[in-house]
Design a protein around this nucleic acid. Structure first.
Length: 105
DNA sequence: AATTTGACAGCGA
DNA sequence: GTCGCTGCCAAAT
């Protein structure tokens, strides 16, 4: 797997995440056959061209936590978008992975 | 070529 | 449950 392809695969998977579901970086990396590639998935997101219109706000870390805050204009905004799509949040501000994490099936 | 950085993950305190 | 350290791997400097 070449590096550019890894990026493209990430974009494709992210583009397939339905509204109301989320995926973790590690999970995506694993689907791509890179069990330790979670960080690269993050880099792929950061470098994601806008015209792809990826639902990158549906990609979160394994703890259900959202992006650090300087990405979508603040964690509050990302959380709001997710809530509008039906993502279930817990009291501590994390996503309820049990309900909203997409299973690869 | 070597060092630093990062939208992560897992484990221990 | 939170905080910090370590492991991992590619991009950027």
């Amino acid at each position: 797997m070449k590096k550019a392809e890894f990026f493209n695969c990430v974009y494709e998977i992210v583009a397939r995440i339905p509204a109301g579901k989320v995926m973790t970086y590690g999970q995506i990396a694993m689907l791509l056959g890179a069990p330790h590639g979670a960080r690269r998935v993050g880099q792929a997101m950061f470098h994601a061209p806008e015209y792809l219109e990826l639902p990158c706000h549906r990609v979160i870390n394994s703890k259900g936590k959202l992006a650090p805050g300087y990405v979508f204009g603040g964690e509050g905004l990302q959380r709001e978008m997710l809530e509008l799509e039906g993502i279930c949040f817990r009291d501590n501000g994390t996503v309820d992975l049990k309900r909203s994490l997409m299973r690869h099936g």
